[in-house]
Design a protein around this nucleic acid. Structure first.
Lengths: 174, 174
DNA sequence: CGAGGTCAGTTTATATTTCAACAGTTGACC
DNA sequence: GGTCAACTGTTGAAATATAAACTGACCTCG
């Protein structure tokens, strides 16, 4: 599955640094890393299938979620882009499709004429609501049910540290 | 960031089941889930950047890794597809690009005339070797250095359970 | 044998993502 | 006020991904 060359291709004693100074992963670290890769990929695929039944892609779903949580169910394109970790360009395209489908509307931003506000429509809210049930059940059955609650929370804490380290502000801009 | 509507869009008491029977996530579970989404996305992005410097995408890199670990540095397309968690179709395309770049070769399978063997070239091995240094350092600095070793191993164990649940055989067929 | 089913891999068509260039807007600074 | 850099969002083309149809090879059971 998800491999990643964590030992030198040639193969060197685990856990040691080679001539180049690269500290390769030891056997256990390697196993953990591969589990990570594998789980993430499989999970993503399963989730995708779940949302697909509601005619939504993962990026689309996240946009709807974010809007539903915003005051007045609207947000500016750039906020949306960063909160959803997407490039502005991609967001434009994706929102265009959502608008096409009648799930969101776009309108000029009152105070900044460069800006555009994206608004969740009633139809969009309904679509989100429908998809959310399936989605949460998926998270539960695939992830939570695979481990104890404490284990899951610990996993969350570890990954939160990872995320904060990469993007301390929580404002990923791509 | 990566949101996912783990509470009902309308907002209901955490941790309880609503009329539909959906058991939404409580506050802590929700936080953990969002950390997961956020970390995975950011990590993926960072890794991508690292590999990009060597002219490789993540899928390409994994294919090379898998080949480098196989006896004689070759594998059949279908083995490759499952070990790398990719559809056969995607693999065909990706391998075509790798071949184009001279990093792998394709040849007919001797014993099964339907089959195709994919072989890592010397050039491909060299490319992999170069990329691997960067990549391992990234895994270390982004993931391992963010937590204790034991924490990381625990994370691996948890996710291994998740993966095995979704794909018990370890032979993801998409 | 040989008909029907399955399997390996590719191909084609379509959808999505990325990338670079763009046009209009704002704000800061002189 | 004028200029210029930075910002917002869009566009269109190229790269990549996904899905379904398709080719040729194997397999099995009558």
């Amino acid at each position: 599955m998800g491999s990643a060359a964590e030992t030198p291709p040639a193969d060197v004693t685990a856990g040691s640094a080679d001539d180049s100074g690269t500290r390769w992963l030891d056997v256990e670290e390697q196993r953990a890393w591969r589990s990570y890769l594998r789980a993430v990929r499989l999970l993503d695929e399963e989730m995708r299938r779940g949302l697909e039944r509601h005619g939504l892609s993962h990026p689309e779903y996240e946009i709807l979620v974010r809007l539903s949580e915003s005051p007045e169910r609207k947000a500016r394109m750039s906020e949306l882009a960063s909160s959803v970790v997407s490039s502005r360009s991609r967001l434009t395209h994706t929102v265009a499709r959502l608008q096409q489908a009648g799930l969101v509307d776009r309108r000029a931003c009152p105070d900044d004429r460069r800006g555009v506000e994206c608004v969740l429509t009633e139809e969009g809210f309904a679509a989100l609501e429908a998809a959310a049930h399936t989605h949460v059940e998926d998270v539960r059955s695939l992830l939570l049910d695979a481990m104890t609650r404490e284990e899951f929370l610990a996993l969350g804490r570890s990954l939160a540290k990872v995320a904060d380290r990469i993007d301390p502000q929580g404002l990923a801009q791509v």
